[in-house]
Simulated scan of single mutants.
Amino acid sequence: MSQELIQQDPWASLKAFTTARIALGRTGTAIPLREVLNFRLAHAHARDAVYSALAVNALQEQLHSFYLPVLLLHSKAADRYEYLQRPDKGRQLDAESITALRAADEAFLQKDVVIILADGLSATAMNVHTQPLLEVLIPLLKGAGLSLAPICMVQQGRVASGDEVGDILQAKVTLMLIGERPGLSAADSMGAYITYGAKPGTTDEARNCISNIRQEGLQYEAAGRKILYLIQEALRLRLTGVGLKDNAGLLE
């Protein structure tokens, strides 16, 4: 379609500051064909992300560089279709995973932090962002003198699946890194959920969440420092959730 037929939106200059769908312009009373096609492409990327799978072998190779044991776990959801239809099963570990955690060496127990990786609703996000975020975060955690449990990777996992991990390993704080529900401008967004004293039955008001970790959102260095700050505050106050405010960077 000729560019002359598209009436530009007066907000067009704001497109330089966001990937949100603003200032699309119009052709008569319709959205320009280019924007319709872009929308359909974004929708396809979001659907692909929901059905994507953790690149388990590649992630294991990447995690070797952090010199931490890695435990492979699975939720009660047998496959992706059951995961999407039965959210409750994604929140619970299967029997084999619980047995493996309970058999863990005593040296793995009672650490300050356990890092848990789960596919969530976008394994794409985990496959892309796990290594670069941990390259920032793990040195920060170790530099702060915090002890780390083995990294746990949960396939077909939701946020609450990390509560069983933290409870069995007796970790003070659980850090769940998980693929977030894809949007139509971000199919690869990672979220970080921080929970103090996690146990089965913990509800969301007892967690702190850092969202939109990706190169076009909250970048790795900023995300790593924010996670460290909240973990240190959680350990100091012995709580997370609505009682833990993010006061980093505020004037005294």
Rank of each mutant, 00 (worst) to 15 (best):
H64P: 00
A46T: 01
L59V: 03
A44G: 09
A30M: 15
T19I: 06
A58C: 08
G25C: 03
L5W: 05
R21N: 14
R47G: 03
A58N: 10
Q7N: 04
L72C: 00
D9L: 06
D9G: 04
Y51K: 08
F39A: 11
L24E: 12
E61W: 03
P69G: 10
K15I: 10
G25Y: 03
R40Q: 14
I31E: 12
P10N: 04
L59Y: 00
S52T: 01
A30Y: 13
A55M: 01
N38E: 15
F39H: 10
L33R: 14
Y67K: 13
E4Y: 02
N38D: 15
R47L: 12
A44W: 09
V36K: 14
H74A: 14
K76C: 13
H64C: 07
V36Q: 15
S65D: 07
L68G: 00
L71V: 09
H64T: 12
L72A: 09
L54H: 00
E4A: 05
N57V: 11
A12M: 00
I31G: 03
S52I: 00
V36S: 08
A16R: 11
E35S: 07
L41D: 15
R34A: 12
V56R: 08
V56M: 10
E35W: 03
T19D: 11
A46L: 03
F17S: 12
A46S: 08
K15F: 08
R26T: 05
H74G: 10
Q60K: 13
F39M: 14
W11L: 11
L41V: 15
A58R: 12
A42W: 05
I22S: 09
K76L: 15
T27N: 07
D9E: 07
T18E: 15
F17W: 10
D9H: 04
T18S: 15
A20N: 12
Y51E: 07
E61D: 13
Y67E: 10
R21A: 12
W11F: 13
S52H: 07
F66G: 06
H43Y: 08
I6Q: 02
D9Y: 03
A20R: 09
A23E: 00
R47W: 03
I22L: 11
F66R: 06
S65M: 02
S52W: 06
I22R: 01
V50Y: 04
G25S: 07
T19K: 14
L68D: 08
H64F: 06
H45C: 08
Q8G: 04
R21E: 15
S52Q: 02
L37W: 07
T27E: 06
Y51S: 09
H74W: 00
H45Y: 11
K15Q: 15
G25P: 01
L72S: 07
L72E: 06
F17G: 07
S52F: 01
L14W: 11
T19Y: 10
N57D: 14
L71Y: 02
T18Q: 11
L68K: 04
Q62A: 05
S13H: 09
T29I: 12
S13L: 02
G28H: 02
L72K: 01
A23N: 01
S13R: 02
E4C: 00
A20F: 01
H64Q: 14
L33I: 11
A30S: 14
A30C: 13
N57C: 09
